[in-house]
Amino acid sequence: MSSLPIPPTAKYPVARRASRRRRNAPGLVAGALAALLACSTVFAAPAVTVTNARIRLLPGDLPLAGYFDLANHGKRAVTLTAASSPEFKMVHMHRSIEQDGKSMMVPAGNLEIKPGDTLRFAPGGYHLMLMNRVKPLKVGNEVPITLRFADHKSLRVMFEVKGAETQ
């Protein structure tokens, strides 16, 4: 699971709770701050988490699909705008649609995820189209993909490379 670490300055619930605690118990300030600095990702609650991140491997240099579940635990909507990876020269956010019994792909555009919602990239719907591998991939490899959001935050997610029958 990957998560967006929230910097202490961000206006997210946990950061606010931490500052309140600081006012109530000044003696703990130094220790709490030191801990926050030492491992801020552990202390910060993840506003956005990604699970089930997977890539369906196909032979040669055929375009691949990346899928994941993106959950927004924060109090504000987040907007997924793009994705990129050092392992692929091109990454597009696409959506498969069916019209009159025909399958086709259209650009996904910007995708807003409301608080409490989960956006699923799954077969037959949204998918990352991963083109032009930088190097050959094998089942079991872990591939980093960075998801970019409208507020200039980004989230680096490790995707597991799985077999052709991956759903």
């Binding site: 399958s103 077969p123 998918h127």
Partner: peptide, 16 residues
């Protein structure tokens, strides 16, 4: 074969 989503998803279902 250059179809990243629907074709391999369908063939994957048939494979399963």
């Amino acid at each position: 074969t250059h179809c990243p989503d629907i074709c391999p998803a369908t063939l994957g279902t048939l494979s399963l």
